[in-house]
């Protein structure tokens, strides 16, 4: 055994004195091209809109007012809560949560199954699950649309085997958006859970079985609590991008499935746009995501403290 004296890692390799110069590019690039823009976006959300897109530098709460309050057609009625945008946000949260749940229900057994294969088979399964993640999201979404569209291969084959008589109207429904989100982010659920199950000590399950627990009781009482960090990580990784998703709702959904991503996108398109309002909606989305991440971080640190 080496001495237990606290020898900080990296000592004697000489990078301690170079920390500043080594990190400078990171600070500059992310600072200028991400932190500063987000700060600027926050400022924009308080500016006045210009009608041909863009802004006038007059500070106002108009964007947030428009988001949350209804003052009637001419803006002279007493303000009531405006439901249009809140509904869109609520629908997005709900869709993202549902997609997360479905990914979890399918992803956990898959991850478990992969992690319990012998090493060689495991590598192949993992490889197969990872490949779609590397394939362009747009292409995957377009492929899905092609598959499930009215005259698409899915409906054709279902009709040819006589399961249905008329094509299922899948595209432009909530179901299609769900399917799109599920399909887009499923690998994000499988990979962290896989990593957690791979580290799981199966002797714990054996101990539980030895102490008369059934398979499913063991799953609920022992396995799930132990691999929980992986499950939570997977849920975050699916929920966060689903919330701001643009491609799946835009390509697979219709007017009824309008989500935050499309709402924001619309504000920056041509002369119909409203930049301050788009910035405000983006700010609200970011706040939602940060709240989720903070809850996650707190859960993580609590888990470590145990």
């Amino acid at each position: 055994m080496a001495g237990m004296t606290p020898t900080p890692k990296g000592n004697g390799t000489g990078y301690r004195s170079l920390v500043g110069p080594l990190l400078l590019p990171t600070w500059v690039v992310i600072g200028i091209f991400l932190v500063l823009p987000v700060a600027l976006m926050a400022v924009y959300s308080f500016l006045t809109k210009e009608f041909r897109g863009g802004v006038i530098w007059d500070f106002t709460l108009a964007a947030y007012d428009q988001f949350f309050l209804n003052r009637g057609l001419f803006g002279d009625e007493p303000p009531t809560l405006e439901w249009t945008y809140i509904t869109i946000f609520w629908r997005s949260i709900w869709q993202a949560a549902l997609a997360t749940l479905i990914c979890l229900i399918v992803g956990f057994p898959t991850a478990w199954f992969i992690a319990t294969r012998p090493p060689k088979a495991r590598a192949i399964w993992l490889f197969l699950v990872t490949i779609p993640y590397w394939v362009n999201l747009l292409i995957r979404t377009v492929s899905l649309k092609f598959l499930i569209r009215e005259n698409g291969p899915l409906n054709e084959s279902l009709m040819s085997i006589g399961l249905i008589t008329d094509p299922l109207p899948l595209v432009n429904t909530n179901l299609a958006v769900q399917l799109g989100l599920f399909y887009s982010y499923l690998p994000f659920m499988v990979l962290p859970i896989y990593a957690a199950v791979e580290r799981y000590n199966f002797a714990l399950s054996e101990a539980a079985a030895d102490l008369y627990a059934s398979r499913w009781v063991t799953l609920r009482e022992i396995v799930l609590p132990v691999v929980k960090p992986g499950i939570i990580a997977g849920c975050i990784l699916v929920f966060v991008p689903s919330l701001g998703a643009f491609l799946a709702p835009d390509l697979l959904g219709g007017a009824k499935t309008f989500m935050i991503g499309s709402l924001i996108d619309e504000q920056f398109r041509g002369s119909q746009g409203n930049w301050p309002f788009g910035a405000a909606a983006a700010m609200i989305l970011m706040t939602l995501v940060l709240i989720v991440l903070m809850i996650y971080a707190r859960a993580q640190t609590k888990g470590e403290a145990r």
Partner: peptide, 8 residues
Amino acid sequence: PSGCGKTT
């Protein structure tokens, strides 16, 4: 023993 300072 471990931590006695010999490695340091």
